[in-house]
Simulated assay, not measured.
Amino acid sequence: MQRGLVHAIAWSLATGAAVTLSWWGVHTVMSGTAYDPPRAVPVSVGVRGGQATDAPVSSSTHRAPPSASPGVTASRTAPAPSPRPSGSPFSRPPAASPSPAKPPAPPAAAGEVKSYPTRGGRVVLELADDSAKLVSATPEPDWSMQVWTNAEWIRVDFSDGAGATVSVFCTWNGHPPMVETVDR
């Protein structure tokens, strides 16, 4: 009887150790791969008309239109209006709003959207005649990113943790926007 009890305790300890070791191994693997944060980071501060704004300039659900190749401008087209179905006998007319309608905001002067790929990541900028706006900045795997914006310039740094840094500078202080890439 005592021998059977010793075997049961030994089996329980061995099973508990195996389950713990398996859970720890799976947890270690999954924490490094399955739950990584997204690589594309929305930029929360933009520059419009030379003034810094707090309005988001990109989002995770809105993407810039694709271009034929890097550095080629992308054109924007308005979606075709969808035909509205005729009213059915069961539909109610929309309720009148109590407040007066706001006049539409004037469209912002759109510039050309250009992509600047580097070994550390990709920077997409919208370049107008006298200003620039950061559309997105996406680091390559195992690279980190830092963004600075000002009324006259934008700087995006990609670093790999081993001392390599790639910087993309866009300046437009009194001249059309110029983009420069520095690889250190």
Rank of each mutant, 00 (worst) to 15 (best):
P85G: 14
I154T: 11
A108Q: 06
K114R: 15
R63F: 13
T33Q: 12
G87K: 05
V45S: 06
V147W: 01
G174F: 04
L134S: 05
S167G: 02
T28H: 12
Y116L: 07
G111F: 02
S115C: 03
S131W: 01
F169Q: 02
F90Y: 12
T138A: 10
V147Q: 11
W23H: 11
S99V: 14
A110P: 00
G71K: 07
A132P: 04
S159N: 08
P107S: 10
N173T: 02
P107A: 14
T138D: 11
K102W: 01
Q2F: 09
G163P: 12
G174D: 15
V19F: 12
G161P: 09
A137N: 05
A8L: 15
Y35Q: 10
G49N: 13
L134N: 05
S44K: 09
L5N: 11
A55F: 06
K114V: 14
P94A: 14
V26C: 12
P94S: 12
V123W: 10
V113P: 00
A110S: 14
A101M: 02
V57I: 14
Q146P: 01
R76F: 11
V41D: 02
R122M: 12
D36A: 15
D54P: 01
S22W: 08
I9A: 15
V179E: 01
S59Q: 06
R122P: 00
V123I: 08
V6W: 11
E180L: 07
D130H: 09
V57Y: 04
A18S: 14
P141H: 07
G120S: 07
S75I: 10
G71H: 05
G163N: 08
A137D: 00
V45D: 03
G32K: 11
D130F: 03
T149M: 06
P98I: 07
A105T: 10
A132Q: 04
I154A: 09
S97F: 04
A128V: 03
S88D: 06
P85A: 14
G25F: 06
A108I: 05
G50K: 07
R122V: 15
G121W: 07
V135W: 06
A8R: 15
M30W: 12
L134T: 02
S144K: 15
S88T: 15
V124A: 05
V135N: 04
M145A: 06
P139S: 04
L13W: 07
I9K: 14
R84P: 01
G71N: 08
A109Q: 08
P81L: 13
A34N: 05
S159T: 12
G174H: 06
P38Y: 00
S67F: 07
I154R: 02
V29C: 03
L125R: 10
A8N: 08
S31T: 11
L13V: 12
A78M: 13
L21R: 07
T61G: 01
A96S: 10
G121F: 05
V72H: 05
E180Y: 02
T165E: 10
Q146H: 09
S88C: 05
R84K: 14
P104Y: 08
P81F: 08
V113H: 03
P83H: 04
R39M: 07
W148G: 06
M145R: 13
A95N: 02
S44P: 03
Q146I: 00
V29T: 10
V57P: 01
H7V: 13
I154G: 01
P66R: 10
W23L: 13
V124M: 06
R119C: 00
R39S: 15
D129I: 04
G71R: 04
T53M: 05
A18P: 00
P70W: 09
D36N: 11
Y35A: 09
G49A: 08
T33K: 11
